[in-house]
């Protein structure tokens, strides 16, 4: 009965076609002054260009923190062939990343970290070293959790046995 109810709920669910939002983010750890960042793609047949800004105005969160953000919206594409360019003062516009990105339906956030003349994809808008530390901290926390559970169990069991002997 439970399974039948779940199946009915699933079949009765509405099928919304959401608007797609794609945030494109580039982290420049060096906080290069006067850096110009842009992204290009073809969105359902339409060539689109996006300027990524670091001025604290939405969708950017904080001004001049080295995190450049821009956002596209529209009917949902499945994937985007995306090219990311930077232009530093006195230098030519340079392609730093080009990739085909599969998109999560509804909202997605694609983040790169500038690493020399290339940008690499990362999970969050954090400088490379910080991202490594966050990843390592998550791993360490889970190991800590396992040790904590074991310690609680062992301590409680030993305490209980000691009480039992008394």
């Amino acid at each position: 009965m439970l399974l039948a109810l779940a199946l009915v709920a699933s079949l009765a669910a509405a099928d919304p076609v959401p608007q797609q939002q794609v945030a494109v983010v580039l982290v420049d750890e060096a906080r290069t002054a006067g850096l110009s960042v842009s992204a290009e793609t073809t969105w359902l047949g339409e060539a689109r260009r996006l300027s990524l800004r670091d001025d604290g105005l939405p969708p950017d969160e904080r001004p001049e923190d080295g995190v450049y953000t821009g956002q596209w919206t529209g009917e949902p594409p499945r994937q985007l062939a995306l090219r990311l360019y930077v232009e530093a003062p006195g230098q030519a516009r340079a392609l730093v990343a080009a990739s085909n990105e599969l998109l999560a339906l509804g909202e997605d956030r694609l983040v790169w970290v500038l690493d020399g003349s290339r940008a690499r994809r990362t999970a969050a808008a954090l400088p490379g070293r910080t991202m490594d530390i966050v990843d390592a901290a998550g791993v360490a926390a889970s190991v800590g959790w396992m040790l904590f559970v074991f310690a609680v169990l062992a301590f409680q069991i030993l305490a209980h046995r000691r009480e039992g002997r008394r």
């Binding site: 994809r121 990362t122 999970a123 969050a124 991202m131 966050v134 990843d135 390592a136 998550g138 791993v139 926390a141 889970s142 959790w145 396992m146 904590f148 559970v149 074991f150 169990l153 062992a154």
Partner: peptide
């Protein structure tokens, strides 16, 4: 625990052990 980057660079592969049952 699965690092945050695992879905970008690691094929989502994680075999995290359940702490409670391990203990």
């Amino acid at each position: 625990s699965a690092p945050f980057s695992v879905d970008i660079t690691g094929n989502s592969q994680s075999a995290v052990l359940p702490g409670v049952c391990l203990a």
